[in-house]
Computed example of a mutant assay.
Amino acid sequence: MKVKTKDLLTINELSKHELLEIIENAIKLKKDLKKGISKPLLKNKTLAMIFQKPSTRTRVSFETGMFQMGGHALNLSADDLQLKRGETIEDTAKTLSRYVDLIMARVYSHDEVEILAKNATVPVINGLSDSFHPCQILADLMTIKEKKKKLSGLKIAWIGDGNNVCNSMIYGCAKVSIDINIATPKGYEPNLNIIKESKKFIDIQLLGNPELAVKNADVVVTDTFVSIHHQATDRAKDFLPYFQVNSNLMKKANHDAIFLHCLPAKRGQEVTSEVLDGPQSVIWDEAENRLHAQKALMALLLQV
């Protein structure tokens, strides 16, 4: 039996070389696509996509990416699988491994994608869990590299909830030598073990003041306060108005700072429309880059 290649459950599983390879290859694949150059690197390959929750960018980028690279993607909701009727994740992983070349899963609990990976004999990609969102950070770092022409030596300001995307951003920054300031309300900090681990490689500041966090920042990032993981709609009261990214806050960052948001955005909450639609926003390039980063990731995991 062929030895299983690595999974991507967190950014930390990638070496710095692998991460940079994905980013550079993604940029190249994007340029090739604009020129009409097609590379069927994943011809005759099949991706199983398991979705426990709704998705726009993750589903469309993976499905389109497989199509553009000559492969095929299967969209499997929780209702489509025998998981709903009690089949174990272990048995599902072993079964799918006999049919497909890759599995991508968007799950509620990170434990579930870990169990899936442990029992699958094909690479497993975390398409989002309650703890991490590594695919988003691949696109974010690709976007930063496109706009800033470098990664090492930059400073990111994260404003808002220290959530799954923030955890992955910290790991990503540590891999490519980007310092990060994180401004969250008390009690909403990212995983402290991830911070402790990553502080060995970069400067990380945990702050309660967004204005201090954005000082000298090259990139300002936020995410929704109330995600699909949180049913309580009153969560936003802990963030507003202080942790909102608006034009006044952006002015306190570097004059050429760019703004990132993984989307979907709740306009008027974590960020104003003035910033989302403003000249410093690169959110649509960032969203598009999910497609190219996904393609480069799958090529790396399948060693093509």
Rank of each mutant, 00 (worst) to 15 (best):
Y99T: 00
E63S: 14
K295I: 13
Q280S: 15
G127I: 07
S168W: 12
Q82G: 04
G71F: 13
E211N: 10
Q205N: 15
K148F: 00
A157L: 08
W284Q: 09
V3P: 00
T272W: 10
K94G: 03
K4Q: 01
D91A: 06
D7M: 07
G70F: 07
Q205V: 04
E288K: 10
K28W: 01
S131Q: 13
L297E: 02
G208N: 14
I103E: 03
E286W: 07
N254L: 15
G187W: 10
V219A: 04
G208I: 00
E87L: 07
K39F: 03
A117E: 02
D7C: 07
L212D: 13
S38P: 00
K237D: 09
I156H: 01
V304Q: 05
I156P: 02
K53W: 07
V165H: 10
H230G: 00
F67Y: 12
I202E: 06
L207W: 11
K196T: 15
L249R: 14
D7R: 09
L302H: 00
G65V: 04
N119M: 01
V214G: 11
Q294I: 02
K30V: 03
R57D: 12
E63Y: 00
Q269S: 11
L14H: 01
V214P: 13
I137R: 02
K215I: 00
T272D: 06
D101Y: 07
R235D: 02
S281N: 10
S247F: 11
I180F: 08
T56L: 14
K200A: 11
A78F: 07
K295Q: 12
D101M: 05
A117H: 09
S177Y: 00
K150Q: 12
S55D: 06
V226S: 06
Q294N: 14
E21A: 12
G86W: 01
T121I: 01
D161V: 14
H72S: 03
F243E: 04
T272E: 05
G127Q: 03
P134V: 09
T56K: 13
G86H: 03
Y108K: 11
A93E: 01
T121N: 04
T233R: 05
P40I: 01
Q269W: 11
S97Q: 01
N167P: 12
E274L: 11
L301F: 07
S131N: 11
H255Q: 15
N248Y: 13
N254R: 15
N163C: 04
G208K: 09
S273Y: 12
A26F: 02
D32E: 14
I115G: 00
N44F: 05
M298G: 02
N246V: 13
